[in-house]
Computed example of a mutant assay.
Amino acid sequence: MIRVVLADDEAMIRVGVRSILTTDPEITVVAEAADGHEAIELVLAHRPHVVLLDIRMPRLDGLAAVAELRAAAPEVAIIMLTTFDEDEYVSRALAEGAAGFLLKAADPRELIIGVRAVAGGAAYLSPRIAHKVITRLSGGRLARAATARRQVETLTPREREVLALVGRGMSNQDVGRELFLSEGTVKSHVSAILLRLGLDNRVQAAIVAYEAGLVYSDS
């Protein structure tokens, strides 16, 4: 069972998100918060697998809450809930350690897919947000590609295989099945990759994999 804490200052949004999530028998919302401070308290009390954070909330907004949650409960995967005109916050949230971004106006199925993905150790960006991120990354792509290739060259062959699969959005369990490795071994490889490349999370690792040519747009 995937345990979720939901934080949004709009009661109607919380009702809607909860109703969508509860259509999946493997997901349960264990608590709801109306601001960032309450969200942190509830996460520490319930220790969920996933916390859904609205970006704009009173007292403590979602972006500030991400940094505090990564320090206080690093095992909890964080998904940001956003509206389309707030995508300028994506880079900051990913740098702070968010594992995913979902649009409130997206297909409800994306919500379940995203929660399942980050609960399994993967990263998830709503396709429209992912398009924005890739578009923003297009400037200076050649220079970044060269840098990414140099970074990847410091990895072992096995680490490069793992990174390529992480870049395709696979969870540790999925990577393990693909490479015939235990989930614990994959986790160790991912940790080593992040450390060696100086990255904070899997989303950043996926971007490096993409820029280094380990992942292709049709994969």
Rank of each mutant, 00 (worst) to 15 (best):
V5I: 13
A7K: 09
D8K: 00
D8W: 03
E10P: 00
A11T: 15
R14Y: 07
G16Y: 12
R18Q: 14
L21Q: 03
L21E: 10
T23H: 00
D24R: 00
E26D: 14
A31I: 01
E32M: 04
D35P: 08
I40P: 00
I40A: 04
I40F: 04
E41K: 08
L44M: 11
L44A: 07
A45I: 01
A45D: 08
P48Y: 04
H49N: 15
H49A: 11
D54M: 05
I55H: 08
R56E: 13
R56H: 15
R56M: 15
P58N: 01
R59F: 10
G62M: 05
L63K: 03
A65T: 12
A65L: 12
R70C: 07
R70H: 07
A71H: 12
A71S: 14
A72E: 11
E75M: 01
V76Y: 03
L81Q: 08
T82R: 04
T82M: 04
T82V: 00
T83G: 15
D85K: 06
D87F: 11
E88F: 09
S91G: 06
L94A: 08
A95S: 09
E96H: 05
A99R: 12
G100I: 11
L103F: 02
K104I: 04
A105T: 10
A106C: 01
D107R: 03
D107E: 03
L111A: 10
I112Q: 08
A117G: 00
V118K: 09
A119W: 04
G120N: 08
A122W: 03
A122Q: 02
A123M: 00
K132Q: 11
I134L: 15
I134G: 08
R136Y: 09
L137I: 11
S138T: 15
S138L: 14
G139K: 15
G139N: 14
G140C: 00
R141S: 14
R141I: 13
L142N: 10
L142H: 14
A143S: 15
R144L: 09
A145D: 13
A148R: 05
V152C: 01
T154D: 08
T154L: 10
R158P: 02
R158C: 01
E159M: 07
V162Y: 02
L163R: 00
L163H: 03
V166R: 05
G169S: 13
M170V: 07
M170E: 10
M170F: 11
S171N: 01
S171K: 06
N172F: 07
N172Y: 10
G176S: 13
R177P: 01
F180L: 10
F180N: 12
L181P: 08
L181I: 03
L181M: 14
V186Y: 11
K187W: 11
K187Y: 11
H189T: 02
V190W: 06
V190N: 01
S191E: 14
A192S: 15
L194G: 12
L195Q: 14
L197M: 06
L197A: 00
D200E: 15
D200T: 15
N201T: 06
R202T: 13
V203D: 05
A205L: 06
A206V: 10
A206K: 07
I207E: 02
E211H: 02
E211F: 09
G213A: 05
S217E: 13
